[in-house]
């Protein structure tokens, strides 16, 4: 790899990192505004015009508050927990293709940090690693409520990872590749995977809600039963990292859903657009549309949160094991049969 390539990749990493953080910051603002709208309130409107500086004020507050490490807590692991949560949330974006290749002069810029040939499994690995942040933090707090929250998080993540993996297998039968770049390219124009895999998409969506610990699956931090769940003992920026990680995870899982099922950066008539406004213009339009789709999904996450009440824990387990997994397996079988009949 040449030096120029490394510099380009480095700049891309920094940009994606900054975008993830800014989106996570403004997701907190959007969530409050949307919650306010759903409950017929006004929402934050004091800091800056329309309360736009509210996330900055919150961030400042998080940094400046007193940091408390409980006396009987395991102090090293108490710090490792939130660090791991935010780290795993941030590394997931490395394999997502944000757009087609940009051509500037003689340089071709790939709008993807790493095109590894097991890309989708990488995302999966990062997701499965994410639970350690919650578990370690919950255990290290030395608090019964935190421990219960951590244990709930672990069993919930493991259960829903299975149906998530099974829903992806049906998709892989169609695409025949694990690379996210190739999956994105196959959905050229309007050939989006959601058209051929609607059931798989709904399964994936439900599992994404469970993996990001969002309502109706936010049992690890169910405040009516567990005070604050796994982050009961946390204060200041360590609490901030846990909350922030949740919003980054929401952004990344929306991006993964858009890439896998909703055509990534593709849109109908993209060849016509490329012919009329130039290749680079079409690429930039594609990136913009990808982010528009991601924002729609983030809005959907919030919409569901303020509409549907939380499940009970046994209902959550029943849904995961007795409903989603059989549907996912049936989906794989049907997809396999249809592919065999078509290719015959």
């Amino acid at each position: 790899m040449e030096l120029a390539d490394i510099i380009v990749k480095f700049i891309l990493v920094v940009i994606i990192f900054a975008i993830s953080l800014v989106i996570a910051m403004y997701s907190t603002y959007a969530e409050r505004k949307i919650a306010a709208f759903f409950q017929d309130r006004i929402g934050p409107n004091r800091a800056g015009p329309w309360g736009l500086l509210q996330p900055l004020a919150d961030g400042g507050k998080m940094f400046l508050k007193e940091e408390i490490i409980p006396t009987n807590a395991s102090s090293f692991l108490f710090i490792v927990g939130p660090s791991l949560a935010i780290m795993t949330a941030c590394i997931g974006s490395a394999v997502i293709p944000w757009g087609q290749k940009l051509t500037i002069g003689a340089h071709v810029i790939d709008l993807q940090v790493a095109d590894i040939n097991v890309g989708i499994l990488y995302v999966f690995g990062v997701v499965s690693l994410g639970v350690y942040g919650v578990m370690i933090g919950g255990w290290a707090s030395n608090n019964k409520y935190s421990l219960l929250g951590a244990i709930r998080a672990a069993s919930q993540n493991i259960s829903y990872e299975i149906s998530m993996g099974l829903s992806i297998i049906a998709l892989l039968l169609i695409t025949g590749t694990l690379s996210l770049r190739q999956i994105a390219e196959q959905q050229h124009s309007w050939h989006w995977n959601v058209l051929s895999q609607p059931v798989g998409f709904i399964l994936f969506l439900i599992c994404a809600f469970a993996e990001t610990n969002r309502t109706p699956f936010d049992l690890p931090e169910c405040e009516t039963e567990l005070v604050g769940g796994y982050h009961t003992e946390y204060s200041s920026m360590k609490l901030g990292f846990y909350l922030f990680a949740e919003y980054i995870n929401m952004f990344i899982s929306s991006a993964v859903m858009v890439t896998l099922y909703w055509g990534a950066y593709n849109y109908p008539f993209m060849d016509w657009m490329a012919a009329h406004i130039g290749t680079n213009g079409a690429v930039i339009l594609g990136v913009t549309l990808m982010f528009a789709k991601i924002f729609l999904f983030i809005f959907f996450f919030m919409w569901v949160r303020w509409t549907i009440p939380r499940f009970r824990y046994d209902q959550l387990m029943d849904l995961g094991w007795k409903i989603l997994i059989p549907i996912a397996i049936a989906n794989i079988v049907v997809t396999g049969i249809v592919i065999t009949l078509i290719n015959r």
């Binding site: 590894i116 999966f124 499965s128 690693l129 639970v131 578990m135 069993s155």
Partner: peptide
């Protein structure tokens, strides 16, 4: 690469989470 990522998902991401779960 495939073995690496499967080792990562299955052993680190699932089996050891269950170990940790039981111990806790």
């Amino acid at each position: 690469q495939f073995l690496a990522i499967v080792n990562f998902i299955v052993y680190m991401g699932a089996i050891l989470v269950l170990f940790l779960y039981t111990l806790m």
